[in-house]
Design a binder for these strands. Structure first.
Lengths: 162, 162
DNA sequence: CATGATTGAGTTGTGCACAACTCAATCGCG
DNA sequence: CGCGATTGAGTTGTGCACAACTCAATCATG
């Protein structure tokens, strides 16, 4: 990556070994936080019969109505390899319908069923429980989200440049 | 979860529907950030022949020497269902040795091989690249880590109490 | 000391993430 | 118009996460 040691301007005196320890903590923290979130949602969503990623897809559909698979993937940064089977399971559960677009036969439009629409009402109580469980204030959550978004964007660019 | 609407003291006026949208953004942000991190590491670690979770295990072993599976699991919040096959793959790759403890035959101690030890040298360059890719300062990283740790702890307690 | 409970590792099954691929539909350019 | 490139879904294969389970080793209690 960076050939010369300590080449980054704002890290003048941090040795590699120290960074390795820091890295340990940071990437572990993010990984652990993401899984802790997943674990909490798993239980909160169990009644609704949804997994965490399925809930994310439903959130998108509740907000923006019928959408092609492509558009869902763009919003969630997921590709068809992840979405296709997930959407099949949502369809099997009776939450969505999938049908090929008539204008573009390559595209498959995903649409909520009546059951899928109705599930929204029951989902409304979930976020408040989650927010309470985080122990964070709304402001902290917004700040965290802002940092994470920047992080995601920066990492995405770095991957593209890799 | 919370039976009465708006019961949380510091959320006096936020309606459920708004929270659902906020939730959309927060849990998505965390999910996306975690995956973006994973994606970056996937590429950075490709040369080392490690996946991101395997790297986390190696970080633990590089720091704290030979450890039983249980101890690794405690440090990374992972259970044997995840660790057993992962450690088998690390063993197949020649990075670690696994052997049953003689004091307690239930326990399996994981130990770095020579190759595993030597890999540390090559791994030293990884974190600096990652830190640079995040676009965050060391202070921001530390702050983020602190918030995430609190988040993880709070969610863990909430799950236990569920 | 015996035996029931607990512990540690491993297995099985389900679902997600993602790379690499296929295949058909569409697009664009000569 | 024709044909090569691109696009959108889907499939396959690998690995991780986790629940639920098995099984042997160990512990603890009467």
């Amino acid at each position: 990556m960076t050939p010369a040691p300590n080449a980054s301007p704002d890290l003048p005196a941090v040795p590699d070994a120290e960074l390795l320890r820091l890295d340990h903590q940071v990437c572990f923290s993010l990984h652990a936080a993401s899984r802790a979130f997943g674990g909490f949602y798993r239980r909160a969503l169990k009644d609704l019969g949804l997994t965490y990623p399925q809930y994310l897809v439903m959130l998108v559909l509740w907000e923006d109505g019928p959408l092609p698979v492509k558009a869902i993937g763009e919003r969630l940064h997921l590709d068809s390899g992840t979405l296709s089977p997930l959407l099949k399971r949502l369809e099997a559960a009776g939450m969505v319908r999938r049908e090929r677009s008539r204008e573009d036969e390559r595209s498959v439009v995903v649409e909520l069923t009546g059951d899928g629409e109705r599930l929204r009402e029951r989902a409304l109580s979930v976020p408040r429980g989650v927010l309470a469980a985080t122990g964070l204030s709304v402001e902290e959550v917004l700040g965290l989200q802002e940092t994470l978004s920047r992080l995601t964007a920066a990492l995405g660019e770095a991957v593209d440049a890799q």
